Amino acid sequence: MSHDTPVVVLDLSATGIGIVRSLAKEGIQVNAYDTKGKYEIGKTRHASCGICPNPVDEESALLEFLIQTAGKYRKKAVLFAGSDDYVYFISKNRYILANYYQFLLPEHDLVKAVLDKRLTYDLAVNSNVSCPKTFAIQDEKHLEQIINQITFPCILKPVFSSHFRTRIDHRLYKKAIVVEQAAQLRNEYHFYRPFGELLIQEDIPGHENCIYSVKTFFDDKMNLIGVWMNQKLHQFPPRFGSSALALSIRDEEVIQMALSFLQKIQFKGLAITEFKRDPRDGQLKFIEINPRIGLTQALSIACGVNLAYLYYLSLTGQNPKPVTRQKEGIKWVYLVRDFLSFRQKRKNGEMTFPAWLKSLSGKKVEALFAWDDPLPFIRSFVSHLRNLWRRS
């Protein structure tokens, strides 16, 4: 295989670092960029790292930055996005960026649909995919009109998750808010509405280990080039957060549901499709699609389906052989987040220290730690603990 085409990764979170390491170990030249704060924590010795403008607030500056950066390479670099904000930026500016970089995304309307939770729900309903009952709230008057149709507890969540994650207030750095009764819903809606559009969704019961993520790569002709999946074990924050501990497993029902859905909507490129098994009826309920590589990329490598590398080979015209089988029973842990998740669960009486230690047993890979590149892990650990101290 030829590895002389360079790579540019936009993101230096654990997701971006997973992409960087999985390609650098193949001998590929990797360049990684992110905004100042994330760069300072995530910069890695496996890539040439730098600071870039923010994809949300400095879109024109980032576009100019990438055009200038492209001039450094003899070949059009393969472009990776490690966050939804970077995906949306690339998709929106695809016709300009395609002159300088190689990347593969679905049509822009489809990218917008999976990033807008209201439109994602419509996609699922129109594709006959079971999903939680959802209400898009227009304003307080509309909330009052439908409040008697809502079953409690329910979930209040942003239409665009990134709108909350960009806020400094820790109350906004969350994927969903659990609401127990109508009065609380009114109060929570009043507080959160100024920061972005909101929707209300049925709360699917069950523990975090009822959640499954299917990772896929379909090429430009919708040929399946790679697929693997994991079960979530812990999330941070607990219940509604990102993965903190995950397990590589294969469940054909989950995989076939994801593949069928993606093929029906013609979702080419990289994707993460998430479902939760409803303990009330045993049925899988669709949660979301993310149009990129996921946080658990290190597990992708460990279980034998390196989606980042398959994507690179495909875009550089090397026609990789599809990889659709995976190693099972390997755990992935984002240790600092898993510890903070345990800490919160112990406070709520939901987990003991011995039970947490037992959950970490077995063969596993760490999200950030690497003996030959320890600093991203150390800086991330310190940053998380510092943020915890500030919030407390």
Score class of each variant (00 low, 15 high):
1 M>A: 09
8 V>G: 06
8 V>E: 05
10 L>G: 02
13 S>E: 02
20 V>R: 00
20 V>S: 03
20 V>H: 01
30 V>L: 13
30 V>P: 05
32 A>C: 11
38 K>G: 04
39 Y>T: 02
42 G>P: 12
43 K>V: 05
46 H>S: 14
46 H>M: 14
50 G>M: 13
59 E>P: 00
59 E>F: 03
59 E>L: 03
65 F>M: 08
65 F>G: 08
70 A>E: 10
71 G>V: 01
73 Y>D: 02
78 V>C: 06
88 Y>S: 01
95 Y>F: 07
96 I>L: 04
98 A>C: 02
100 Y>D: 00
100 Y>K: 01
101 Y>T: 00
102 Q>T: 01
112 K>P: 02
115 L>A: 01
117 K>Y: 07
118 R>Y: 09
123 L>T: 00
125 V>F: 01
126 N>Y: 07
130 S>F: 10
136 A>Y: 12
138 Q>A: 10
139 D>A: 07
140 E>D: 04
143 L>D: 03
143 L>V: 07
144 E>Q: 11
146 I>Q: 01
148 N>P: 00
153 P>C: 03
153 P>V: 05
154 C>V: 09
160 F>Q: 06
163 H>G: 00
165 R>A: 13
177 I>L: 07
177 I>Y: 09
179 V>F: 10
179 V>L: 05
181 Q>R: 14
189 Y>A: 06
190 H>D: 15
194 P>T: 11
196 G>Y: 12
196 G>W: 13
196 G>P: 06
198 L>E: 07
199 L>S: 11
202 E>A: 09
204 I>S: 10
212 Y>S: 09
213 S>Y: 02
214 V>Y: 09
222 M>E: 01
227 V>S: 03
228 W>H: 10
229 M>N: 02
239 R>H: 07
241 G>W: 13
242 S>H: 04
243 S>G: 14
244 A>M: 03
248 S>Q: 02
248 S>E: 06
250 R>C: 08
255 I>E: 15
258 A>M: 06
259 L>Q: 08
260 S>M: 10
263 Q>A: 05
265 I>G: 09
267 F>H: 08
273 T>D: 09
273 T>L: 12
275 F>A: 08
276 K>V: 05
279 P>L: 13
284 L>E: 12
286 F>G: 11
287 I>K: 02
288 E>N: 13
292 R>Q: 11
296 T>Q: 15
298 A>K: 14
299 L>A: 13
301 I>N: 11
303 C>Q: 13
303 C>N: 15
306 N>W: 06
312 Y>Q: 07
313 L>A: 12
313 L>K: 15
318 Q>T: 10
319 N>Y: 10
328 E>K: 15
332 W>F: 14
334 Y>T: 00
335 L>R: 07
335 L>H: 04
336 V>M: 15
337 R>Y: 13
339 F>W: 14
341 S>P: 05
342 F>N: 04
346 R>D: 09
347 K>Q: 15
347 K>W: 10
351 M>W: 05
351 M>Y: 03
354 P>V: 12
359 S>A: 15
359 S>Q: 13
361 S>M: 12
361 S>Q: 14
367 A>K: 04
372 D>I: 05
373 D>Q: 08
373 D>L: 11
373 D>F: 08
374 P>C: 12
375 L>V: 09
377 F>K: 01
378 I>G: 07
380 S>W: 14
381 F>A: 15
382 V>Q: 09
384 H>S: 06
391 R>Q: 13
